[in-house]
Design a protein around this nucleic acid. Structure first.
Lengths: 346, 346
DNA sequence: TTGAAAGCGCTACCAT
DNA sequence: ATGGTAGCGCTTTCAA
């Protein structure tokens, strides 16, 4: 009558078996059960087997929360996500769940979307005693970072350059922009333009800066700059503005600082009767799946998303391990993906 | 030397203040601190203020995990997400974080992506003692559901019809398909086609069934059926197949059972030189943001995502409350959004 | 090889 | 209005 194998279905807040209840049924001490379940070699094989059987039979699962209380480690990693108009974030999230699970951690999803993280949400970070925190939100996630810092919770920023003395892993966005500019110039483009994202995201600004730098290095005039945003719609608007320009002033190549943006630009240009890349070359950056196929076949610099999350978790884990490591910024290089939205030198 | 205000930055596993340490410093009992912090009116205002000040000063935050141990409620809701090629899932996730937070719960993100949920992952559901679980994954999430059922953890499926005797909230997908068919027929289309999604997702099959039913009701021949999938690319492939058909056999209207699919179809048709909706009408279902603007302006049936998540959480919360409620299936009607990808009757 | 006891941080109950 | 105690489920000394 202690640990009846749990009946399926409802029936109130199911009283689940515990180490104690198993111990009673097995006629051993709780500590023995604890050790047996964790495969402690000091426990005789016979007892270990008996307890394992009992656990299986009763459907016992350890209470991770109680374990946390004594071990001091929750196995939880906080995940703060930015706005999701940009599919990169969805891809990042998938990568994060998978890789965290592979390392035995679970993700506490705390925020996803626009705007700053709410105070109550940021506090959940400490209330649930997350071991570490992964932040990919561009907008005002500083609040969460501050709380973590104040509580000795390691933080790693992903896809976002660290504002303070934080650790981060990012793509070398500057180099990406620069490379794209060089390539475009080498292919003979003369009037380059850039469509920017949110002004406060380092991703956007770094890419735009790199692009400008590359253009300058090629001896061309500074790029025309169009204000975009985070969404396809913003890119579309910028594309319309570009298409509306009289031909002689119209850029012959445009860089959308993110793929969604570039896709929006392409759509607007084509709708205006311009050919891409016939009349105008368009390039992006991110490497999202949607831009790979028709009708875009977008030439872009892909971020090594998998590696970014992987390294991010590495940094986190190492710091959780307790090592007093210095803050660390790792920059991963993107890879150029040549598709068909731009004329590029062979 | 007990609770020095935590120094920012690193410094090992920060020893955080507890109810006990606060009690010692304040010269009161732990139970008093506990009560004071929770605003228990039985504690004198004076003491309450003193403790609150102390808590603020030392940067105390309650340990939600320890609290769980005694209250039996973790405040955690498990979230199981499907593959993310379809942006609906990203939108759902955002909705879920926000609304859960508004209700004081946090989300434990357990799975997102393809394939069945791993055993270790599903077990985390019970190990972390989630109060309830929201499942939106179409493919084989039954494992997670089974574990929950076996442990008395309430489960609600969202956007997925319940297989067993589970609770669920979904969009009336059948009605959506049926309505679309009726509209298309009324507009004079005669050769209708449907591009299906994954055969094992109820969303896809219900919509396709509804569509077929609507067509039959209009006295037309059963729709040509093209196998799609979950991605834009799958829709594109189907679109190519459609475009390749000799004109007399070519459908004059096609229903992509999800917006991404429909977008893929549109892209393929247009690339083949066909006009949408001039030559062929295309409609979708889901209502994702990307399909709203140019170049798609997709006519679709939008799912009431916000309401779906809202009701899902409602069902969950009510059951968590302990009430022995019967399992419940709620069907929310979608809303037709007329845009420009299809000729429809006024 | 196993048991007993203490304690992680918190709350609830019973006293006072 | 407040204190003491016990106990949530688990691990980890220290003993035996």
């Amino acid at each position: 009558m202690d640990d009846a194998p749990l009946p399926p279905g409802q029936g109130g807040p199911a009283r689940r078996p515990t180490v104690g209840s198993l111990a009673r049924r097995a006629g051993v001490a709780a500590s023995t059960v604890s050790r047996a379940l964790r495969g402690d070699p000091r426990i005789s094989a016979e007892v270990r087997a008996r307890i394992a059987a009992l656990a299986a039979e009763t459907g016992y699962t350890p209470n991770a929360l109680a374990r946390t209380l004594v071990s001091g480690r929750s196995g939880l990693i906080g995940l703060v996500l930015g706005p999701m108009e940009n599919p990169v974030y969805a891809e990042m999230m998938q990568e994060a769940v998978t890789q965290a699970a592979a390392r035995g951690s679970r993700l506490l999803l705390l925020h996803a979307g626009h705007g700053p993280i709410e105070d109550a949400t940021a506090e959940a970070l400490t209330q649930y005693r997350v071991d570490g925190c992964l932040i990919t939100s561009a907008e005002l996630s500083s609040r969460a970072a501050a709380i973590c810092a104040a509580n000795g919770v390691p933080v790693v920023m992903v896809n976002r350059v660290p504002r303070q003395f934080e650790s981060a892993v990012a793509c070398d966005n500057h180099a990406a922009g620069e490379a794209l500019a060089g390539l475009l110039a080498a292919a003979g483009h003369r009037r380059l333009a850039v469509v920017t994202g949110n002004a406060d995201t380092s991703t956007s600004t770094r890419r735009a800066e790199g692009f400008a730098r590359g253009i300058a290095a090629a001896g061309l005039a500074a790029p025309a700059c169009f204000n975009g945003g985070a969404s396809h719609a913003a890119g579309y608007a910028a594309g319309q503005a570009i298409a509306a320009l009289p031909a002689p002033q119209r850029p012959d190549a445009v860089f959308g600082v993110s793929d969604v943006l570039a896709m929006g630009v392409m759509d607007a240009l084509r709708e205006a009767g311009l050919s891409v890349p016939g009349d105008i070359s368009v390039v992006g950056a991110d490497g999202i799946a949607l831009a790979a196929g028709p009708p875009y076949r977008l030439t872009t610099v892909a971020q090594p998303l998998q590696a970014m999350i992987g390294r991010g978790l590495d940094l986190l884990m190492a710091r959780i391990g307790g090592a007093a490591l210095p803050q660390e910024v790792v920059l991963l290089r993107g890879t150029l993906i040549r598709r068909h939205s731009a004329r590029l030198p062979a």
